[in-house]
């Protein structure tokens, strides 16, 4: 059944004051600064120029910096993010969660063995304690 949205209007006085004060400072600065008329891009083509700028090619109609090095660095960062997300979220083939056994994402507290996802862990506590060394043998 769809429900209409309700607002969460608790007492957030300090946070609201911080946000409004920051906005007031920014608005004061922006409205007192003087900018010229916007130059715009004229009749130049914007999208091909983005491509030329991003891959450090000559031929763009609009002046820009070149971004080839930044492109490669961000490529590596995205690859690291992909690997990290997969490592955090994946399961083994037998349904056990990687994070609980090998990474200790719970901070090392005594594990809740009653959770439904790892029922077979308590039968082999050594495998859980040794980390990922025994995971291949557990299969």
């Amino acid at each position: 059944m769809p429900t209409r949205p309700h607002l969460n209007l608790g007492s957030h006085l300090l946070s609201g004051l911080v946000a409004v004060a920051l906005f007031a400072v920014l608005a004061t600065v922006f409205l007192t600064a003087s900018f010229g008329a916007p130059q715009g891009f004229g009749g130049a083509q914007v999208t091909p120029s983005i491509g030329y700028a991003m891959f450090d090619l000559s031929g763009g109609e609009i002046p820009s910096d070149s971004f080839l090095a930044a492109f490669e660095i961000i490529d590596l960062v995205l690859l690291a993010a992909l690997a990290a997300a997969v490592m955090l979220a994946r399961r083994e083939a037998d349904g056990k969660l990687i994070g609980i056994e090998s990474i200790r994402t719970d901070g090392g507290r005594p594990r809740d063995t009653t959770s439904a996802s790892d029922t077979d862990v308590e039968t082999e506590p050594n495998a859980a304690a040794d980390g990922d060394g025994d995971r291949e043998g557990a299969n």
């Binding site: 429900t3 949205p5 309700h6 607002l7 969460n8 209007l9």
Partner: peptide, 11 residues
Amino acid sequence: LGVVLVEDVWH
């Protein structure tokens, strides 16, 4: 403002 003020995370 709706994003930060609404009660339900789906809304």
